[in-house]
Design a protein around this nucleic acid. Structure first.
Lengths: 227, 227
DNA sequence: CGGGTGCTTGATACCGATCAACCCACGTGG
DNA sequence: CCACGTGGGTTGATCGGTATCAAGCACCCG
């Protein structure tokens, strides 16, 4: 747990470009910025646990946060990986009083923290804010439904190929990507064990994918699409 | 495709108890009811397909609807099964112009149909409506996140046990359930092949689960929780 | 009685988890 | 400068779970 501050101007600049904030007009934006506090966490810090009473939600300014669940014998499964601009736990604005999953800093992170009750009140008065929240919720919902469908339809190499294709520019026949986080985190995001991710990368070698550390070269984008 | 009618009073009674409508006051409720049209589909009818232009969303009055995706070689995976009271595709109120999955009637269904644009306009003026929609979106989001977590953490028998536990009364040591739909639909909902569901039921026999047709007897609820 | 349809059962194959060993890059301290 | 430890990643061997394919069964309805 950590420092709580008013946002500095760098943080504000990031926050303003965030999906939940980007669509807001002058007044609504000011209102939301006024409710935001900056907090930071070290790698592996737990932000909250499933079942705890929820009174704040977050928006990532830098770094990555894992949202995950545990089963009764302690195995964990990632539900979502949140990076810069992503907000999480906003779904609790209009729901039960407890967090429904665990959140952990995957590395050092800085976050904007919002008081659920205050934002709820602000949304009540300000249609722009409530519309922005709806949009965020709808987006998360579709993303999560995509996740279910992908888990159920795609094999490990296909998931990795799909991920690569969504994180490289559309045009051109080749591309190179730098992973924004550790491979083990990517594995979790794709619902794979780290070993399975590693093997998936090596089967993708024959489709023109070269991996060295976090650098990934894709020689033939169209070949990837055929996987 | 089928009859389009104003709602009859039976349908209205159902619709009014629905999550999206239940929280509405007199005026907002009237406004929404005024936008609703009743439609019905035969078993296996396609309501819409992924990629089609979306101009309406639905709320189930009776029967069940499958939401599913296809992969390129034609295999399908269910994303969600919607029963009476469930609404779907409302997430498109504030998002892209196209449906993001396929919807099919799993049996004969009656639905309330809402024009996206009109509801959007209504929500813009009426905070109650927009709050109700948010609540529905948030609920769906959490449900879908649960689904991801369950898919990634639980085996087939565990998923079935979990399903049984959520569809039987909390108190008591034994219970009996009548499945509201076909087993093959349940299989899809749980992300399983029908054969796998069948086998899961038979491994649950040793935990005191007896299946005959759609009737399921659970002799020891606590035993199920240990699976 | 014949023919659906939905479900179960069996045999097999595949995919990914798991466990263990190893590798490599890096940092630290003797 | 080197020995060592650590953390992230890869590789190999094995196991388990579920999909798939195929056949058989039960029930319903003509």
């Amino acid at each position: 747990m950590n420092k709580v501050l008013r946002l500095n101007s760098r943080d504000k600049n990031i926050l303003v470009k965030t999906p939940i904030m980007a669509s807001l007009g002058q007044a609504s934006l000011a209102r939301m910025l006024d409710l935001a506090a900056a907090v930071s966490f070290e790698a592996r810090d737990i932000l909250f646990r499933e079942g705890e009473h929820a009174d704040v939600f977050y928006c990532v300014l830098s770094g990555y946060v894992r949202l995950y669940r545990l089963n009764k014998d302690g195995r964990e499964a990632d539900i979502r990986i949140c990076g810069p601009g992503d907000s999480f736990a906003e779904c609790l604005l209009y729901l039960g009083p407890n967090y429904r999953y665990n959140a952990q800093a995957a590395e050092g992170v800085t976050l904007a923290r919002f008081d659920l009750a205050k934002v709820r009140a602000a949304a009540e008065q300000d249609v722009e804010i409530s519309r922005a929240i709806m949009q965020a919720l709808a987006t998360h919902l579709l993303t999560t439904m995509d996740c279910v469908a992908n888990d159920r339809l795609q094999t490990a190499p296909q998931r990795v190929a799909h991920f690569l294709l969504t994180s490289c520019p559309k045009e051109g026949t080749s591309a190179s990507i730098r992973l924004p986080f550790q491979k083990s985190l990517l594995a979790g995001k794709l619902g794979l064990a780290p070993e399975a991710l590693s093997r998936a990368f090596s089967t993708l070698r024959r489709a023109g994918v070269t991996v060295r550390g976090r650098l990934i070269q894709i020689s033939d984008i169209n070949a990837l699409k055929q996987i």
